[in-house]
């Protein structure tokens, strides 16, 4: 830690540094800021504003708060699930600025200004998103824990195909990717279903893909 804001960091940004600097004034002169920071244990807080499912949100969070924890613990949007918390299972998948990401592997403070869509923002119980309706129709789940992540991921994956983004399963890099089963399977590999509902999940996505293609 420096005594002064590192040059080029705005004052507003530097204020986020918060706790260390504030507490450091009480330190005896023989303890350096740097040595004190090395033993920092109390949380540093930050203000973050973003839009979630079309609604502006302003939160004060511990810097350590992931986007997933901000959604679940602060905003009580518990559709997004914490499966592994390490980006391996995909249960936390949400759509940020139009793209699917693992919300467990990004900090809430990093998403300041972002537009976030969770499964709660895709459809409502009486007005389901076509992907939600297709998962029900094709029995694309058993326990349902991975389902919100699967649905957010599937919606964004179809957009990736429409946008012409290739995948490992694309036979050609120069032709637009096709709406075929092997493409959908490859693109959904970041979403694990331990009940093994994969074949029904692919059927659900395929139905939506054919309708919207």
């Amino acid at each position: 830690m420096n005594d002064h804001p590192p040059s080029g960091l705005s004052r507003r940004r530097f204020l986020i540094l918060g706790a260390v600097t504030a507490t450091a004034f009480a330190l005896p002169p023989f303890i350096s800021l740097k040595a004190y920071a090395a033993h920092l244990e109390q949380p540093a807080m930050a203000n973050v504003t973003f839009e979630v499912n079309g609604k502006p949100q302003a939160l004060e969070v511990d810097n350590r708060t992931t986007l997933l924890d901000a959604l679940r613990e602060h905003l009580h949007l518990t559709g997004s699930k914490k499966g592994c918390d390490h980006g391996q299972c995909g249960a936390c998948t949400v759509i940020v600025d139009g793209r699917r990401i693992n919300s467990c592997l990004t900090l809430a403070v990093m998403q300041d200004g972002a537009k976030v869509t969770t499964v709660e923002g895709l459809g409502l119980p009486d007005r389901l998103h076509p992907m939600q309706a297709a998962f029900i129709k094709h029995d694309g789940y058993q326990c349902g824990y991975c389902t919100p992540g699967q649905i957010c991921s599937a919606v964004a994956a179809l957009k990736e195909i429409r946008d012409g983004i290739p995948s490992h399963a694309s036979p050609s890099l120069t032709e637009p990717p096709q709406l075929i089963t092997s493409e959908l399977q490859e693109r959904m590999s970041g979403n694990i279903c331990r009940c093994g509902a994969y074949s029904n999940i692919i059927e659900a996505i395929s139905e939506v893909a054919e309708v919207s293609a």
């Binding site: 590192p6 080029g8 960091l9 986020i16 920071a37 949380p43 540093a44 810097n63 350590r64 900090l107």
Partner: peptide, 15 residues
Amino acid sequence: MRAFNYSRADSPAAA
């Protein structure tokens, strides 16, 4: 996770 401070850099040089 250990507590940490967070800031956004305004330029590569500042970062």
